[in-house]
Design a protein around this nucleic acid. Sequence first.
DNA 1: GCATTTCACGTACATGTGTACGTTCATGAT
DNA 2: ATCATGAACGTACACATGTACGTGAAATGC
Lengths: 128, 128
Amino acid sequence: MVDRPAISKGEMEVARALWQIAPATVREVFEALPASRAMDFTTVQTYLRRLETKGHATSKLKGRVRVYSARTKERTVIRDTVNDLVQRLFDGDTMPLVRHLIEDRGIDETGLAELRDLIERLDQEGKK
Amino acid sequence: MVDRPAISKGEMEVARALWQIAPATVREVFEALPASRAMDFTTVQTYLRRLETKGHATSKLKGRVRVYSARTKERTVIRDTVNDLVQRLFDGDTMPLVRHLIEDRGIDETGLAELRDLIERLDQEGKK
DNA sequence: GCATTTCACGTACATGTGTACGTTCATGAT
DNA sequence: ATCATGAACGTACACATGTACGTGAAATGC
């Protein structure tokens, strides 16, 4: 459970692309970025390098190109990031954020249905 | 709806204290910080100065001391911060985060009850 | 086989961030 | 009147971050 430096916003976009397609070359990651998020090829290169420095990725030269892989799981990073947010914004309390999401951001009918299921499941477990 | 530079992590801790007790002097904010979060008096001063520079606070000299007030509402900052997170981590999709919070972080019985109410309310509105 | 494309890699550079020190001035205590 | 306290304010400084350029080498197009 080595605890690596947090991933910055810019790095995060690259990391997400990497998680989706790893192992992948810089170019592949570059191309996997959402079109809405234009950044220079070399910027992607820098972010990948930094992710590796921070211990969130590894790479290996395959012939002439460097191939990157993720070293931390997306789930873990999400957990840490969310934990941090909840801590800093809500003193570590989960419900205020849940409430905010549901009330302020709103969820659609499908989401509502899923939520009902989720709760029912938790209810069952609670009763056991 | 001027859009001000985002509040950094360190600034956020000071901003939260400020929201709670504003208008307040640097020392008051300093003292309102959670004990767990020790930082130098002048560090608080710097953060308040930066919050003002960024447009999130205002201040006025009252005699010899400077009194700070919040200029952006906590709710707004929370909204923006969460929006940003949801965007960056979940492509702007709310449900994955809700799911993560409920499943991965877990909520207690009280939270569950509140959730049931929340959903019921939304159901009513949906039916209308 | 020469020009063009494409990488890796080193380097850069402005701005942001966390954290605080030093100086100066006013104020309240002695 | 003198001195310790406490503020404001300017300044600092290392490290993080966003973003990319330049150079040199390999591969590919013609």
